[in-house]
Design a protein around this nucleic acid. Sequence first.
DNA 1: CGGAACTTTGACACGTCTCAAATGCCGTGG
DNA 2: CCACGGCATTTGAGACGTGTCAAAGTTCCG
Lengths: 232, 232
Amino acid sequence: MLKDENSNTCISSSFSIFKSLNSDELELLNANLKCNTYRKGEIIYREGSWITGIYCVKKGILKIYKTGIDSKPQIVAFAIKGDITGYRSVLSNEMACTTAEIIEEAEICFIPSDIIFSLIKTNSDFALSLIQLTCRELDQANIFIKDIAQKTVKQRLAEILLMLENTFKLDEEGYIAVNLTREDLSSIVGTATESVIRILGEFKNEGLIAIKGKKIKINDKKKMNLISDSIF
Amino acid sequence: MLKDENSNTCISSSFSIFKSLNSDELELLNANLKCNTYRKGEIIYREGSWITGIYCVKKGILKIYKTGIDSKPQIVAFAIKGDITGYRSVLSNEMACTTAEIIEEAEICFIPSDIIFSLIKTNSDFALSLIQLTCRELDQANIFIKDIAQKTVKQRLAEILLMLENTFKLDEEGYIAVNLTREDLSSIVGTATESVIRILGEFKNEGLIAIKGKKIKINDKKKMNLISDSIF
DNA sequence: CGGAACTTTGACACGTCTCAAATGCCGTGG
DNA sequence: CCACGGCATTTGAGACGTGTCAAAGTTCCG
């Protein structure tokens, strides 16, 4: 029994995308996995490269970004425990359109694309789950387009902080449990690093947040929402 | 034979999303269609409402937008002949997250959602087509996030003009065959109407484009690309 | 023909970016 | 274990891009 290594415990209900698989399908999946641990800074796949399967995050945090002008990155998503990534390129037979980089020591399983395609073929509920996953992400992306186009940097930063609190758990003290550099933050919000620093400072002075190094705690979620929604 | 009204000629190979359907499935589809013509300004569905099926565009042009701050719209897509819209909300059982408005007299067919779901269930190729469609749109959205976050208004406007030329056909004189107000343009680019006007003026003075009322013609596509890619 | 919506132009204020320099933090190697 | 070097953060000053507001001109359509 290799249960602790590669098998059943690896992919299961913690990945909601696989919730519609029966035990046979789960077994097929787990029999074809390659799991690995990665350290901060490692690249799982790179924009423009061909990837041959999708990646499931068992543990840790990845940032998913596109590379823009002067190789300035634009973070378009994070992947945490239970998320899959790389599926877009695999499903549409295209080169990876983003880069996936570890920002917190991670354990990641690789699933070859033919397994995914055969699951889509044989299990329509799984296919539907995938459709719904992409639809949800598409709406998120459109919301962000709207916000980045219409909101000020301050509003966007408030919004992103709330999003981060929503995405990542809080530690014992209430700080958002992720270490992002100020530059990372600027690469999400779409602004200069210095602007992030200045506005974080304002938020802190107004008592809206607390800062301890890279860790941020939102003190006044209500006011933060008002700022983000520009009712302020 | 009602061929000219609702049946086979209506949904067919012109909708690439339906290319994987066999003749039985096409027949089922066409038997359940409701087609209508709409005039400029009409709303097909509205953000926040529940829609019970998807819409196929046989003719005409729609703008798809989200409503933002001070009800300022943010256009996130267009739908033209051969496109489907509204599928995101249907597939993920959520309220419409965008509004679809006619900007050029259109002929549109409605397909009830249960038909779509049953096709997904029985035809995995159709499901895969849908997945690939959403994946492509998702990447487009992420590209636009990157650009809107990193590019100047001028660069974005150049990019959008190129995109419009790519999306819509050209008329006999080479003008992009769509009538967008300057405000529409500003709602795509994410800027003020006045900024669009001023920069269009610059482009025109530099001979990059020609303007005839709402119609725009790109004279120097190469230079336009350079501007958009900020190699300029 | 009249009015409404759209377009254009100008002046001005403000937000945000850029550049530069100082300080702080952290991991690596001696 | 400490010192060093490099990277991240912070702060300031100044320039520039864009948004806002106001007013005039234009087009469109009933």
